[in-house]
């Protein structure tokens, strides 16, 4: 039997970006947001979008609050992009406990801003999604839900690029890892940026204070 048959695949792949795995890969499972709105995972949340996904549960006291607070800082650092061309999703690891109301309470408690959606759904679907976008570790390890709380997965479906890192990495690192999934900017723009970076390098006379990453524009 083909593995694909196990997945909740409602839509055809016809409208997905050419190289994306589409609903056949990501699934089109129906999830619920903290506002109790129904959304399809690929069509409504992934397709053509640049998204940042993490896993959490409302009662998680170990790492989740630190991660949520980190992500809030990253959202600020992305200066208005979140909700516009980048979307944050937090998917519960414990759908049995986390109904939309519980997630809403969690989001409000942490002062989550717009552009950041909390999601719950059928446990089978969520496990499938977790495996699909996790892709990091050993199956035995992946089955342990508590191991997933610090993983950030970044997907830009429009260019079929994934990045990812620990949600507890530095704000600057997380921000960079998210922007590494941006489409390439036009050459003229990159040359102008490089001239600005070069001007900063030229002002530095002590080598170790060079920029850490030339891709950084902070």
């Amino acid at each position: 039997m083909k593995r694909r048959n196990f997945f909740t695949d409602f839509a055809s792949n016809a409208s997905r970006p050419a190289a994306s795995g589409g609903p056949g890969y990501y699934t089109n499972a129906v999830l619920r947001t903290q506002d109790n709105k129904e959304v399809r995972f690929y069509d409504d949340l992934i397709k053509g979008k640049h998204v940042v996904i993490n896993f959490m549960y409302a009662n998680c006291e170990k790492a989740c609050p630190a991660i949520t607070s980190n992500m809030l800082k990253v959202q600020r650092e992305l200066k208005g992009r979140v909700g516009k061309d980048i979307f944050f999703y937090s998917i519960t690891l414990k759908p049995e406990e986390d109904d939309p109301a519980a997630l809403k309470e969690y989001a409000e408690m942490h002062g989550v801003k717009s552009g950041w959606t909390f999601l719950t759904g059928d446990p089978h679907d969520l496990t499938t999604i977790r495996f699909r976008i996790g892709r990091w570790n050993h199956p035995g390890f992946d089955l342990n839900v508590t191991q997933h709380t610090s993983m950030l997965r970044v997907i830009n479906d429009s260019i079929n690029r994934w990045t990812g890192c620990s949600a507890l990495a530095s704000i600057e690192t997380i921000k960079q890892v998210i922007t590494w999934a941006d489409p390439m900017k036009p050459l003229e723009e990159r040359i102008r940026e490089n001239a600005r970076i070069q001007a900063r390098i030229d002002k530095m006379d002590i080598l170790p204070t060079w920029l850490g990453s030339l891709g950084s524009d902070s």
């Binding site: 390439m184 050459l187 490089n194 920029l211 990453s213 030339l214």
Partner: peptide, 8 residues
């Protein structure tokens, strides 16, 4: 961290 993009 010193990576550069296409056409450069």
């Amino acid at each position: 961290g010193d990576f550069f993009g296409p056409q450069l």
